[in-house]
């Protein structure tokens, strides 16, 4: 070999990739959650998360600590998203899917416009959730922040899985998604389950945003746009029907994008997204339902 391969760098870059992939995974999970119950991609998911970050910023600005603002913001986001679902999505519940998709596009503009309206366009910073000092594991230095992001993301995924798997509410949510008509006969309030799904998704998005923002030197109203694209890509890569696939797809994508950006010179930061999308396209052509998706048989 002409040069010594730097295993330390590889390990570091992999963890950094997992860290950003983790925040994408949360947003991807939010997208999958809504997609599974309504068959609609919520294009406003990223902007809603951005709005949550600005709420968190205001709370921190008024003297709350990061973690107090963190939990308060999640609560506000869940309540806000349920309200938005009731006002905006419920009237088009019975409309064609593309109509609902366009409504979420409209919502994207509304939320983005509102954030620019309420908060001036200057750049802002959020305090770091975790210590910025490095930690050395097996001779390789990692940052606490990256490890913390991974831990919070995975913890939340497990929590959500527990909610869906072990609680009555989770069962009702799943039932409403799989078979709305029969669920209604069994006394599940399907429409409210959809609203709750929106709330949970917004909560996930809020966490994703609040983990993304401190990692940046500064942020403005555009902060979640790339995250949404990567999350969308990660969800599709894993199979948009599968929550596990969305998480795995996002983590894979995070590592892949970061390694490619580091090791392949001509890609740099500019072409990361197009390259990522091209790779996903390649994967989809081989496995049209994503890596973990099942090809579903449809009745004619």
């Amino acid at each position: 070999m002409l040069f010594a391969f730097d295993w330390t760098q590889l390990a570091q870059q992999t963890v950094i990739g997992l860290s950003s992939g983790g925040t994408w995974a949360l947003l991807a999970l939010a997208i999958v959650l809504i997609y599974r119950s309504t068959g609609v991609i919520n294009f406003a998911q990223g902007e809603m998360a951005m709005f949550s970050v600005f709420i968190a910023w205001s709370l921190v600005h008024h003297g709350l600590t990061y973690w107090a603002a963190f939990f308060l913001t999640i609560a506000i986001s869940i309540a806000g998203a349920i309200a938005v679902e009731r006002v905006v999505i419920r009237p088009v519940e019975q409309a064609p899917v593309l109509t609902v998709v366009i409504v979420t596009l409209g919502l994207l503009f509304v939320v983005d416009g509102a954030a620019r309206w309420f908060w001036s366009p200057e750049t802002r910073t959020l305090p770091n959730a975790f210590s910025t000092s490095p930690i050395t594991i097996a001779g390789v230095a990692f940052s606490w922040q990256d490890l913390g992001n991974i831990a919070v993301s995975l913890g939340l995924v497990v929590l959500l899985w527990g909610l869906f798997r072990f609680t009555k509410l989770g069962l009702a949510l799943r039932a409403a998604a799989v078979n709305p008509d029969e669920s209604r006969l069994l006394g599940i309030r399907v429409s409210w389950m959809l609203a709750l799904g929106w709330g949970l998704a917004a909560g996930l998005g809020a966490v994703s945003g609040m983990l993304t923002a401190p990692a940046l030197a500064s942020f403005d109203q555009n902060l979640m746009q790339p995250v949404l694209l990567y999350a969308f890509a990660g969800a599709v890569l894993g199979g948009i029907e599968s929550p596990l696939g969305a998480v795995a797809g996002s983590l894979l994508l995070g590592v892949f994008v970061n390694l490619v950006g580091t090791y392949v010179g001509w890609i740099g930061t500019d072409l990361r997204l197009p390259v990522a999308l091209a790779v996903i396209l390649g994967v989809l052509l081989v496995r049209p339902a994503g890596l973990f998706g099942k090809v579903s048989a449809r009745r004619v």
Partner: peptide
């Protein structure tokens, strides 16, 4: 921000 807000709101209302 206001024009974007109105733009989005108009799309939603029309839909």
């Amino acid at each position: 921000g206001v024009p974007d807000f109105i733009y989005g709101a108009a799309i939603i209302v029309v839909m």
